[in-house]
Structures are given as structure tokens and as C-alpha cells.
Computed example of a mutant assay.
Amino acid sequence: MTSWRYVLHHRVAAHHRALSGISFDGEWLQIHCGMIRVQVGYAWDGCSPALRVPGTRIWLGVPDGPVMDDGRPAAWRASLLHDALCQFRRDIPGLTRDAATAVLAAELHDAQAPLWMQRLYPAGVRLLGPQDFPGDGPRLA
């Protein structure tokens, strides 16, 4: 049994103004002119933190939200794009924490996630998510 909750079976692409001016070509992720693409085979654990109970299909942690009309949890796509941005953040010139968070927030809104998720999840990643994005520059003490 895999340790990942999700694996992409089709490439996912989206346009986000927050990514305008960023250019990146990686094996799993590409960004050009505001367009982000995540390739088939990319795997992630959904909203974090989340852990699979060993030997089961049960996951404990931050919920991915209610199942929507497409059969996927509300935060499925938002967690995918945010996870990919965070995973490769050190390799993506100009990527800021605010841009990655804006992508998450926009995707939650577009998915019509419950309002509590649209408010809580971006605030949570701002506070508890990765803080070291190259576009943010050095932090002053």
C-alpha cells in the first residue's frame, strides 16, 4: 500500500495570476506565463499534516473536505498545486509564499469548498507551512 493519498492519472493545468512572471521547468512541475502544470504520476498526501494509519486506508489529520460533484474532496486540486509549489519552492526562482498561498486560496474558492476551508486553510499554511521561498528574499532578524 502506498504512503501517498493521491497519484495523478492525468496532467493538471491551471492559470493563476499570482504565478505571472515565474518560469520553471521541472520533471513534475512546469510554470510559464501564469500557467502551472503538474505531470502524470505526481503523488501527494492531500492537505497536511496527514498520516495514513499503517495497514489501512484511513488517514488522520487535516481533512480534504467534503466530496464534491466530481467525486473528489473539495481541497484535492488546491492541495495538489500548493504541495507541488511547496515541494519545489527552492528551485523556482521568484516564487513567494504569498503566491503559493494565493494559488491555494483561489483553487479552494473555484472548487466551492466550504467557506470555513476557504478562510482557515490559507491562514493555516501562512502560519504553519514552509516559510523559505526564494522570492521572499532573506528574512531580517
Rank of each mutant, 00 (worst) to 15 (best):
Q87M: 12
P66A: 14
L120D: 03
D70M: 04
H15W: 12
G21Q: 11
C33Y: 00
G21D: 10
Q112V: 00
A18T: 11
I22S: 00
D83G: 09
C33K: 04
A106K: 10
G135I: 00
W44R: 08
M35L: 13
Q30R: 15
W116D: 04
Q131T: 00
R119E: 07
W116N: 00
M35H: 13
I58E: 10
P134E: 07
A43N: 07
L19T: 01
Q87K: 14
G135R: 08
P93L: 09
C47Y: 04
I31R: 07
R119T: 03
H16F: 15
R57N: 14
V103K: 07
W76C: 11
V125S: 07
R119Y: 11
Q118Y: 11
D83P: 01
D45L: 02
E107Q: 05
H109A: 13
P66R: 13
A102S: 06
S48P: 01
H16E: 13
T56S: 12
I58F: 07
A50D: 07
L81S: 01
G124F: 13
G71F: 04
L104F: 06
R37I: 07
A99V: 05
R52I: 02
D25A: 13
R37H: 08
C47P: 03
D91T: 04
E107L: 10
A75V: 09
L115C: 07
A100D: 03
Q87N: 05
A123F: 14
H109M: 10
G26Q: 03
T56Y: 09
G26E: 03
R126C: 09
L29D: 03
M117A: 10
G34Y: 10
S79Q: 09
W59R: 01
Q112H: 15
W59G: 08
L128Q: 12
C86L: 03
A74C: 05
C33F: 00
G124Q: 12
F88H: 14
G21Y: 09
D45C: 15
T56I: 00
R72W: 12
L81H: 10
A78R: 04
S20Y: 11
R52K: 15
H16T: 06
H15C: 07
P73G: 05
L115K: 11
A99E: 01
W116K: 00
G129C: 12
L19F: 02
L127H: 14
F133G: 00
I36N: 05
G55M: 05
D25R: 07
D98W: 03
V103G: 05
A74Y: 04
G71L: 06
I31E: 12
G21F: 12
A111P: 03
D132Q: 15
L60F: 00
G65S: 08
Y42T: 06
L51W: 11
R37F: 01
G26P: 02
G129T: 12
L81N: 00
V53L: 11
F24G: 04
G26S: 08
W59V: 05
